[in-house]
Design a protein around this nucleic acid. Structure first.
Lengths: 339, 339
DNA sequence: CACGTGGCCTGCCACGTGGTAAAGACTAGA
DNA sequence: TCTAGTCTTTACCACGTGGCAGGCCACGTG
């Protein structure tokens, strides 16, 4: 049936434990024995039993990555990087999808999977401050994006306020005066939306522009469809049209642009649009999308490294809040076609 | 430290095995004992040890999904669906990324992960006919898309020839006469490209159009960048410009459209473009993208169901090749703006 | 009352592995 | 040749769980 170390040992003519020693690179093994064991492994096509290994050693070499939706480009790009980085560390990634569902997020955080995951990288949506405090599970967690609850677990993300400020300032510097914001959220738990709205307000103030609350449009989510709805409501509203829109995500921006073009407006001539996330398709869309580009690879690397450090260290490490880099990428949706 | 069944048993005043029985819904447990055990589980926040369970029972309730790139929308959309469907069956999905790398694909197929995965859904890129034949690992596999090797493992996919025929015929019915194809592949292993090229040729023949080999453009991959390069080469070539392009993937189409628009051409008035995959962003791009829409949910459901059937059945099941549905979705990139 | 039946609970064992420490082999020095 | 020290291999155990079969008890029947 299944090939075990015992089978390998029998074939190589050594004790079962010696096979284990060879596999785990125990230093004091003679070249002769090592060669015989390796050959037997090869001949029998032996593969270590992961369950047994993990049961015995308590280590699974698996980390979890929990994101709201796999098919949202920002998260799939992040997932790709996390998988790559983890692989460099000899780790495999178990990807879970919460769909932004509170129960699923609670299950993930409270350790439904903790028995086979050494650590968890988690991008929260529905969970707020109190939820993490009640957490009993001790699996290391690194939060991405949303900080959700301060000082309880490690966190990696960019300075959302500063990023939103930079993007909004860019629109103001182009001479735009009625700059709208799409993507504020009514849910109290959405820290991201709050921070980005704050940055937007700060930039307007710094530019000497008045904040028109009617130009701040809440959305149900962060998808293209939400962007369409929000943009449509801006166009339908009374009063002068906005001449620029800063969207809390690239997907919102794509939806907004689609509505603008459908309405016969030109982007960026009539309305400039900036997004947030720098998803790949933004470089190819028409117009290409000006956006805030978080350093996703840095985020992935930091998160994985942090998890590893915490999993390997016996002593309690201090909680860290790592601020990653971001940059403003100016493309056609604000700057227009080059020639 | 970790809470085990023994701790629960002690607290509930029963034997350890009784706790196991309660957890596994063994029928002959009195209501009183069951209640006490469940309460103790609750109070101690007991969670079953996955490794031990899987070691003892040989079942992990985990399936693997191996795709080339997580951030390619087609695969991330598929991944989302597979995760959802698997969850409905009480399964967790372990996602692996092969990056189209031959060694990684071989590792996946030959059971590097087989010890903790009950089955594998695998979307091949680099592996060809012979590779699966030499496979020694016995973990059930379902192939997606590329058939790769006939009759050895289950396969789920659409009829690529028919789909390509439908898309090309659509372009011909619009009156287009110089219809190009972007995305043929020189690699012998790429069955998908071959099938779609075949459908393209058949449709041209059926429409009474001559096949101009110069209009069939190979690409290195299936990305936007590859589409840009291919479209540029079509524009740079001598002779009359194509008036339509059928691309083997939506990403290729996006790249192609971008080049066309940059060149000052109108889509679809000057050149109509159709893609393949029906990724979400195609509904929002400018212009929106005409495409072949495979029934991804059906594919995901079939693949997971097939895997479960094979994992649960003791006897060898016959190899199945399931053909999923597809449809042609006509949007602006071929039909133009509605009004 | 004796016996059989069936419901409920339990103890024993093994899954395949790595940690620990002791046993065995071998070398060098006196 | 013997001893001390080092290198190499081994034996034993435990990780936490589910399969199996046996024991106990209550009940119904002859």
């Amino acid at each position: 049936m299944t090939v075990t170390q015992a089978d390998v040992a029998a074939r190589a003519g050594v004790a079962r434990k010696t096979v284990s020693n060879v596999i785990n690179d125990y230093p004091h093994v003679s070249d002769d024995v090592r060669a015989r064991v390796l050959q037997a492994i090869e001949e029998l096509d032996y593969r270590p039993n992961h369950a047994a290994r993990s049961l015995r050693s308590g280590r699974s070499r698996i980390i979890g990555l929990a994101v709201p939706e796999l098919d949202v480009s920002y998260f799939s790009e992040l997932a790709r990087l996390v998988v790559e980085v983890a692989q460099d560390h000899g780790l495999t990634v178990m990807i879970m999808q919460t769909l932004g569902d509170r129960d699923r997020e609670l299950a993930v955080v409270n350790g439904t999977y903790s028995q086979f995951v050494e650590g968890l990288i988690y991008s929260p949506v529905a969970l707020g401050g109190g939820d993490l405090e009640q957490r009993r599970d001790k699996t290391p967690i690194v939060l991405l994006g949303e900080r959700s609850s301060q000082g309880l677990v490690d966190h990696v993300g960019i300075d959302n306020v500063a990023a939103a400020r930079v993007a909004t300032a860019h629109l103001a510097e182009l001479g735009r005066r009625r700059i709208a914001f799409i993507g504020t959220q009514h849910r109290p738990s959405s820290e991201i939306a709050r921070l980005r709205t704050t940055g937007y307000r700060e930039a307007l103030a710094a530019a000497g522009l008045e904040v028109d609350e009617r130009l701040i449009v809440p959305t149900a989510g962060y998808h293209r469809k939400d962007g369409m709805i929000a943009m449509q409501s801006l166009l339908d509203a009374a009063g002068p049209r906005p001449d620029a829109v800063f969207c809390a995500t690239d997907l919102l921006a794509q939806g907004a642009i689609r509505v603008l073009l459908d309405a016969g407006l030109r982007v960026p001539e009539d309305v400039a649009v900036a997004g947030f996330d720098d998803i790949d398709e933004g470089s190819y869309s028409t117009p290409t999308l000006t956006t805030i580009s978080p350093d996703k690879r840095q985020i992935a690397e930091t998160a994985v490294a942090r998890l590893l450090a915490r999993a390997q260290s016996k002593t309690d490490l201090a909680i860290e809040d790592t601020v990653s880099n971001f940059s403003l990428v100016v493309r056609e949706s604000t700057a227009g076609r080059p020639h």
